[in-house]
């Protein structure tokens, strides 16, 4: 799976309360959730994000609540991939389960800047910053998790009998 897009960058400990504030959790409508994505951290996000854009962040991205609405809102907003130094564990598994692509790479998250054009290959774990020409290698997912991702998420994996 390959991705290419412009980078929107945030810092450490981006929590699920700022990704999608609880006051909007009275709906499961994906479009509505996406319209409030990142609102309490960055009011401009929802209006400036373009399909395919890549989100880059620091340590412990997605910490806090287990709300799957957070990766759903990010995915629905058009973000194709999130690269972070580390992910909070529930956000990590939620992203895999719903088919939001994520990559953990400290160096890439440090070096890549807001607005850079980035390409990434999820299977190989290769990240290329087209703006600076730098290449980074992320830890690829174990085969089991790649299987869930290649099915398109946990629901499809269970339906296809890949998980039992």
């Amino acid at each position: 799976m390959k991705f290419a897009g412009k980078v929107i960058k945030y810092k450490d400990n981006v929590d699920t309360d700022v990704i999608i504030p609880a006051r909007y959790l009275n709906t499961i409508d994906k479009k509505e959730l996406a319209s409030h994505c990142m609102e309490d951290l960055d009011k401009t996000f929802a209006s400036r994000v373009k399909p395919g854009d890549i989100m880059v962040a620091g340590w412990n991205f997605g910490c806090g609540s287990s709300r799957e609405h957070a990766p759903i809102a990010i995915k629905e907003s058009g973000i194709s991939l999130v690269i972070a130094k580390s992910f909070a564990r529930i956000f990590y598994r939620n992203s895999i389960n719903i088919g939001l692509a994520i990559l953990e790479c400290e160096e890439a998250a440090d070096r890549i800047q807001e607005g850079d054009e980035v390409e990434a290959d999820l299977t190989k774990g290769i990240i290329v910053d087209k703006t600076t020409g730098e290449t980074f290698t992320a830890e690829p997912f174990p085969p089991f998790i790649q299987e869930i991702i290649s099915c398109g998420g946990l629901i499809e994996a269970v339906k296809q009998g890949k998980i039992q």
């Binding site: 287990s66 990766p71 529930i90 598994r93 939620n94 389960n97 719903i98 946990l154 998980i163």
Partner: peptide, 18 residues
């Protein structure tokens, strides 16, 4: 441990989680 809604859905269906 805390999980997301998709894990909950699959857990309710299969009685298992990864």
């Amino acid at each position: 441990t805390g999980v997301g809604s998709t894990d909950m859905a699959c857990g309710m269906a299969t009685g298992k989680a990864w």
